[in-house]
Nucleic acid binder design. Structure first.
Lengths: 213, 213
DNA sequence: CCGTAAGCACACAGAGCGGTGTACATAACA
DNA sequence: TGTTATGTACACCGCTCTGTGTGCTTACGG
């Protein structure tokens, strides 16, 4: 609120229409789903005219893809960079998600759009692969015997917890965390939890994927 | 094809419109999703006039709920009754699903409908709970230390594999099966895989739930 | 033989959807 | 001052969706 909020008809009312549109997307798409959120409602929530919205995005599809791309997952970005935790603790921290998370939006988008070729679906795939890769990197760092396998397994647990939470309307992440603990204990040869600040670079998977296969 | 198939305008053309409608639902809802399948298309596929459809079902919502209710999951009904397998093998067999399974329709319905109060969503919850209960029963039968916990964990693995398969467009059930094997080995105190035909009754969870909370 | 039940064909209503066209208003910059 | 970029307000198009209304056809049963 520095120089923004010019007036009822001012040129820019809150630093760019784009941001407001994407911000409204974050809320509405997650609360109501993608298909059930019309462009009219979304523009109204963003306080942006529909005409403007279609000058920033060629269509709803592009908007949905951007929405997913802009989604900054608290889990991913927050967990993997925490050098105060051991790799092993980092792996487990991936299951400590805040309870106010309705559903992994990537799964939701893939199911709702129902088209694997949709840009958003492609990004969802890329993202999920990236998460698994990051988990694998951390597993390797933790000294796991087969880090790729463990990463894939932990990723599956996260997705399972997300899906089950949605269907049952009850938090399933504690169960997933319990399984994760077992898997990690089995995979790491009962030794070598590396020091926290000893971060030899991860093998180098990007924090966020860009292209679509 | 005994006395059915009367003619182009015969009174009954395949033993009841209801069956044909539900049969077409099984196919279309799974292939295309619920929201993307209109009643027009569905009625055309079922060779039933729209008017007739709405005399059998008060609306699409009821039809969707019936569709889920009639869904006979090959996994559930097939696996738990196989007395030729040990309980432990039965638990693992739950992950041997045929590769031609697009997505667990219960998850799909819960995500697509996006309303926990929808009859179909409620049934999906009940069904998922029933599966977990059956798994827990089998785990108990197999001599697991904490069967309820193991049942919930295996159920989470199944859901995770289903969700991940959908998002990644690649079969994730082998990974889930690998995890399941680890969990089962850890939970069963390295003894007592009961004889195949020794079926003392399971604790008694219904094969399919009926009411919705 | 006639009534009734079941179904069909078809048009239509009402709403919501994604997306566009048009005319106008404001602010920055030349 | 005038131009241009950006945005608004609002009507509108074509489409699809769920759901009905209406009248006709067929088969069965008393």
């Amino acid at each position: 609120m520095t120089e923004l909020e010019k007036g009822p008809q001012g040129r820019r009312r809150g630093r760019g229409a784009r941001e407001r549109i994407l911000s409204a997307s974050q809320q509405l798409f997650r609360e109501q789903g993608i298909n059930r959120t019309g462009m009219d409602q979304l523009c109204a929530a963003a306080q942006v005219s529909k005409r403007t919205a279609y000058q920033h995005f060629t269509g709803k599809d592009e908007l949905v893809a951007e929405y997913l791309r802009r989604f900054d997952p608290s889990v991913l970005s927050g967990v993997f960079d925490r050098t105060d935790l051991t790799p092993r603790e980092r792996l487990l921290a991936a299951f400590d998600i805040p309870p106010a998370t309705p559903l992994c939006p990537y799964i939701g988008a893939a199911v709702e759009l129902h088209d694997p070729q949709h840009p958003a679906s492609q990004y969802a795939r890329d993202y999920k692969k990236a998460v698994a890769a990051r988990l694998a990197d951390t597993a390797r760092e933790a000294g796991a015997a087969e880090p790729e396998q463990l990463g894939e397994q932990l990723a599956l647990l996260i997705d399972g917890a997300a899906a089950r939470t949605r269907v049952l309307n009850a938090d399933a992440f504690p169960t997933a965390a319990a399984i994760a603990a077992v898997l990690i204990d089995n995979a790491i040869p009962a030794s070598s939890p590396r020091q926290p600040s000893d971060d030899r670079g991860t093998t180098g998977s990007a924090p966020v994927p860009v292209g679509g296969e």
